[in-house]
Amino acid sequence: MPQRPDLSLYKTIVLDCDGVVLNSNQTKVDAYYNTAKRMGGTEAQAKAFVDYHIQLGSIPRNDKIRYYITEIIKQPLTPERFQAFMDTFTEILDETLMQCEVAPALMDLKKETANAKWMLLSGGDQAELRQIFPRRGLDTLFELGIYGGPTKKNEHLASMIADGTIQFPALFIGDSRFDHQASTGAGLDFIFVADWTDMPDWQAYCQTHGVTVCHQLELSPVTAFCAP
């Protein structure tokens, strides 16, 4: 049976945002769909945008929007068109991020890991996160800062390990394939949080790679994988 990790070991804890700190994965899915529709996309194009978003997981939105423009609607990637999509997505997402649920065990986890410093590391837009989290009263939980796109997670991790911001041993808590790959590639331990993930094949992936899986931030281990 999986054991609950010993959190007292860690000097640094890195948390993903969507699906971990906030129940916002479906919010993001809806934002991609509604952005495509508002910008004149067909139903099929909007669904293809959503599928690509889910496939890429925690990759920053900039890359997804570029792909949508060039590969799905097959339009020239002009600065004006790209910015119009970015602005529309931000407008749609802002209100819903202020309303979505915060992980119930977030404050308990903070108390339990009082000896570790926290960092938020998201695929979401960094400037947007740095506006949303203070408005929700959550920014002070993350002593090491709030980081996001357009810089990718593996790039953030590499730079913050190099400058000593991340101290080892370190733990990354995420809910996507890219979270696992980026964190373990950088030498961090990893826990997959399952209850709010939108990763379609997470059970098979976690079994194949021997990933520790927990329900939410209470970090109660999942003892058996069942079809969602």
Results as ranks from 00 to 15, higher is better:
T90F: 04
S122W: 06
G123M: 11
M119E: 10
K111M: 06
G145S: 11
Y68V: 05
T35Q: 10
W118T: 11
P79Q: 01
Q75A: 02
Y52L: 13
E91N: 13
R61S: 09
P60A: 00
D16I: 12
Y33T: 12
K110H: 06
Q55V: 00
Q55A: 07
A103P: 04
C17E: 15
T88S: 09
E95F: 13
D63Y: 09
Q99T: 02
I59A: 04
I73L: 10
V21A: 12
T70I: 08
I69H: 12
L141F: 14
K74W: 00
Q83E: 08
T90E: 04
E155T: 11
E101N: 03
L106W: 08
V29C: 08
F82I: 03
G19C: 06
P104V: 03
Y67K: 10
D63L: 02
Q126I: 06
D16W: 04
N115K: 15
L106H: 04
T113E: 12
S24C: 10
P134R: 01
L77I: 00
S58L: 08
V29I: 15
D87C: 05
Q26N: 10
L56E: 10
N154C: 07
L97G: 13
I72M: 05
Y68T: 04
K64F: 02
F85K: 07
W118Q: 08
T70V: 14
A103L: 12
D18T: 01
R38E: 14
H156C: 02
D139Q: 14
K64L: 07
V102E: 02
M86N: 09
D51R: 06
M39N: 04
P76M: 05
N34A: 07
K28D: 01
D16G: 10
D139F: 04
H53G: 02
K117A: 13
T42F: 02
T151C: 07
G19Y: 04
K152W: 00
I146A: 03
Q126L: 06
Q126H: 08
P60G: 02
A44N: 12
L157R: 03
Y67H: 14
T42W: 08
R38W: 13
G40D: 04
N154H: 07
T90P: 03
H156A: 03
A36W: 01
T78F: 15
K111N: 10
S58K: 05
G123A: 09
Y147T: 11
L77S: 11
D63I: 00
P79I: 00
D87K: 13
D87M: 04
D125V: 00
L22N: 14
Y52W: 07
R136S: 08
K64S: 08
Y52G: 05
T70W: 06
D139K: 06
R136P: 09
A127T: 01
E112T: 10
P150Q: 09
R61Q: 05
L97D: 08
V102F: 01
R135Q: 15
A31G: 15
G41R: 05
D108V: 01
Q75C: 02
R61W: 00
K110R: 15
R66Q: 11
I92G: 08
